[in-house]
Design a protein around this nucleic acid. Structure first.
Length: 423
RNA sequence: GUGGGUGUAGCUCAGGGGUAGAGCAUCGGUUUGUGGUUCCGAGGGUCGCGGGUUCAAAUCCCGUCAUCCACCCCA
């Protein structure tokens, strides 16, 4: 019995940040809380979709779809049923848009603000910050092309990082232009690579064939080509002014950014704005959050022309960036620990435990009747905030002794006053 | 898919052909109405798995799997 390669168990008290339940849950709580502050609402779609959702949504030539998806057929009566092919979702946006159209969300609200949180699956070689099952939190704003919404989701992204006390990150933005300019740019990139064929290796020539835009980043960083076509040369006036407006708004709101003209994304649906937030502390998988505008995806799914912006954040990558101080703050503790001095008080102790739980408290009690000191030591170890002590006197008089483990102060009172004594 | 590093106790790691080790953690005692410290003790291992060499393999050789890192790709 073994865990599948690239998959993780998440369990209590794990020493690894990406495998610890309490750390995972508090991070989840914080980031979903921020999304709610911006009035985004949760959408939960299935983990499995028809493969088509992703091939048309993400693009069949992308690496994600062509070699990283978990695709499968069903077995029916011992036979492979090839009538439909399913995929574990490799990302969130395609399914959200599928659902948006299928559930006619556009009829209820002009603008839909959705967030999701959940596992994604990609068959890749595992590495630091890269797992075959990983969690993404994503934001999708569907139904407007207003630049202020672009600003709003970028600030949401930064808000998340700040609330997780993550420092040392860089926001990179770029405009890749609309569909027409992207086509023109692709043509020019192909022309350029044909002229420089001898200097480019065969793997990269394959990439150009599939998706010319993905070569742009390499052209500068890997080959040092100076005269490679740039996205900005092909932008029309609308795209240019949109990008200018956004940078003005970011400047005005003191959001630091870097314009990266080579920034393109590995998913086909983007247009105009693309952005990434990177951290230098993660090694080679340094993108913690990425997104952009995608105005043509709804149409591609046979919906009506609908403008959208969104991003997705890698939860495990966020976890890897948490500081030790931050992690220590979310360490679990127990609210109450009920200690009894003699085994014959165990029923009474259970009675008190039950009352506290009824009041909504988190209570631990040693049912194995270890020694008084042992119980108190254990209460201390699991960081109980308060301890209820039941000894001879308390048992006889139907009282309890409530001890605050931080201040050390104790208070004796009748059991009937329990609910008023604790808040 | 390609290359490299590492697999010994729950964790971090030492050992390097002849009885399996340390620190931390866990549990018990020190402490029969008061925790965090100290001291003492206990449990826990097919030395990743399979094969080979050898009187003898955790140790040497081959294979394999896992994991980490990088390429690639991405969140």
């Amino acid at each position: 019995m073994k865990l599948i390669k690239g998959f993780k168990d998440i369990y209590p008290l794990s020493d690894k940040v990406v495998e610890n339940t309490s750390i995972f849950n508090s991070v989840k709580e914080i980031i979903t809380e921020i999304a709610k502050r911006y009035n985004f609402q949760e959408i939960i779609t299935p983990v499995i979709e028809n493969k088509d959702t992703f091939t048309t949504g993400i693009g069949s030539d992308t690496d994600i779809v062509s070699k990283e998806m978990y695709d499968f057929y069903l077995f029916k009566e011992g036979k492979v049923d090839k009538s439909s092919i399913y995929s574990l979702r490799p990302e969130g946006t395609a399914a959200v848009i599928r659902s948006y159209i299928e559930q006619s969300m556009d009829k209820k609200r002009k603008i839909n603000k959705l967030y999701y949180f959940g596992p994604m699956f990609r068959y890749e070689r595992s590495q630091k910050g890269r797992y075959r099952q990983f969690n993404q939190m994503g934001i999708e704003l569907i139904g407007s092309d207003n630049i202020y919404y672009e600003y709003e989701i970028i600030s949401l992204a930064i808000d998340i990082l700040e609330n997780l006390e993550i420092k040392n990150f860089d926001l990179e933005i770029n405009s890749i232009g609309n569909e027409q300019s992207l086509k023109k740019l692709s043509k020019e990139v192909i022309k350029f690579t044909e002229q420089n064929k001898s200097k480019i290796n065969s793997d990269d020539l394959q990439i150009v064939k599939k998706n010319p835009l993905r070569f742009l980043d390499k052209a500068i960083n890997k080959y040092n080509f100076k005269d490679v076509p740039r996205a900005e040369e092909f932008l029309d006036n609308n795209s240019k002014s949109r990008f200018k407006d956004l940078t003005d708004i970011l400047d005005e709101n003191k959001i630091l950014y870097k314009i990266n003209n080579q920034l393109v994304r590995g998913i086909d649906y983007y247009n105009d704005l693309v952005f990434e937030i990177k951290s230098s502390e993660l090694g080679s998988q340094d993108t913690i959050l990425a997104g952009g505008r995608y105005d043509n995806l709804v149409k591609k799914f046979n919906g009506s022309q609908t403008s959208c912006v969104g991003f997705a954040a890698g939860v495990e990558r966020l976890l890897l960036l948490l500081s030790n101080q931050f992690i220590q703050k979310i360490e679990i503790s127990t609210e109450f620990y009920v200690i009894y001095q003699n085994q014959s008080f165990q029923n009474y102790a259970n009675e008190v435990t039950k009352m506290l739980r009824k009041l909504g408290k988190n209570v631990e009690m040693d049912q194995e009747y270890r020694s008084f000191t042992k119980q108190l030591k254990h209460a201390n170890k699991i960081k109980s905030k308060k301890v209820v002590i039941i000894g001879e006197k308390e048992y006889k008089n139907k009282q309890i002794l409530l001890k605050d483990m931080i201040t050390g102060q104790e208070e004796l009172f009748d059991i009937g006053k329990l609910s008023t004594k604790i808040t």
